[in-house]
Design a protein around this nucleic acid. Structure first.
Length: 287
DNA sequence: CTGCACGCCTGCCCGC
DNA sequence: TGCGGGCAGGCGTGCA
């Protein structure tokens, strides 16, 4: 599942093929995703010209004419596949002109230039819906999201305010999308390692210095991951089918039992379970 | 109010 | 080789 860097990578893949195109046809094979796809989903979007392809947290937001916004969340296992006529077919996929597709290809959106966008999601934890573009920030799915971690207004001061007085472990607070938008299990683990903070630290106990390190760590890990095209675990790939590379740069995530990569540390990476999620950390470097 | 366990759904990997 | 259990990138609900 895609966290912010993977979602941003998908967004960047969609942007050039979608912006300015008109939607010709939409096919909803399954509407029982995490939230049901609205019954008038296809009717609303059919024939609309696509505007900006944006992102908020882990949501992709596709602006469409007629004051509409297509909202996409990839959940744990969602993928977006782009099929362009005349281009190489996706590995394991059917050719462009074959009607049949993978059983997990739930929604197809085709543009007038015959580009086909396929939403595929085995676990169906993701969602796709359409809503009004105006006042989008008040939408129930978006209104409580915390600040965008890569925007300049996300500062140590802001993070300190959001963590102040909270007794939840730092790990849980950072996974909470209301604290900061876009982090998930991998990048929280990696950011906490870079900031040398224990996932078990009480959120409200961070000093200003801790917050400064944490903000820097969150920014650097997200930026590096985006530069690497995200992380490819199991089934995730970019929209054009290529794999991300950031999984090779993990320092703690899924590295239980390995040596800490920090020079002269040599301690063993541990795994614990917090809030039903695995936390990976170096018990020596992270306090 | 806050924090946390759980369920949602499928696939994969591991150990027996 | 087959099978059961545990685990997985998220998030909303309901409970203490």
């Amino acid at each position: 599942m895609p966290e912010l860097p993977e979602v941003e990578t998908v967004r960047r893949g969609l942007q050039p093929v979608l912006e300015g195109q008109r939607i010709r046809r939409i096919l909803v094979r399954r509407s029982d995703l995490r939230r049901p796809v609205p019954s008038d989903f296809a009717v609303q979007l059919q024939g609309r010209r696509i505007g900006h392809v944006g992102r908020r947290g882990k949501y992709i937001i596709v602006a469409c004419e007629g004051d509409l916004a297509l909202l996409i969340h990839l959940g744990m296992s969602g993928r977006i596949i782009i099929q362009e006529p005349g281009k190489a077919r996706m590995p394991g996929r059917f050719a462009w002109d074959q009607p049949c597709s993978d059983v997990h290809d739930h929604i197809e959106i085709e543009t007038e230039s015959a580009v086909r966008l396929i939403y595929s999601d085995p676990r169906r934890f993701g969602m796709m819906t359409v809503t009004a573009l105006s006042g989008l920030s008040d939408h129930p799915l978006l209104k409580d999201l915390g600040p965008e971690p890569l925007e300049p207004r996300f500062t140590a001061r802001m993070l300190a305010e959001r963590l102040a007085g909270r007794t939840a472990p730092l790990k849980a607070a950072l996974l909470d999308q209301r604290t900061v938008a876009g982090l998930g299990n991998i990048y929280v683990c990696e950011a906490l390692f870079r900031a040398r903070l224990s996932p078990e630290r009480l959120s409200g106990s961070l000093s200003r210095r801790d917050c400064t390190r944490l903000v820097g760590a969150i920014r650097s890990v997200l930026n590096e991951a985006i530069d690497a095209g995200g992380s490819s675990l199991r089934d995730y790939t970019q929209a054009d089918g290529t794999q991300g590379r950031f999984q090779h740069a993990f320092q703690v995530y899924d590295r239980e039992g390995n040596r800490c990569s920090r020079p002269r540390c040599g301690a063993t990476i541990r795994r614990t379970v917090q809030a039903n999620r695995s936390s990976f950390f170096c018990p020596r470097c992270q306090r």
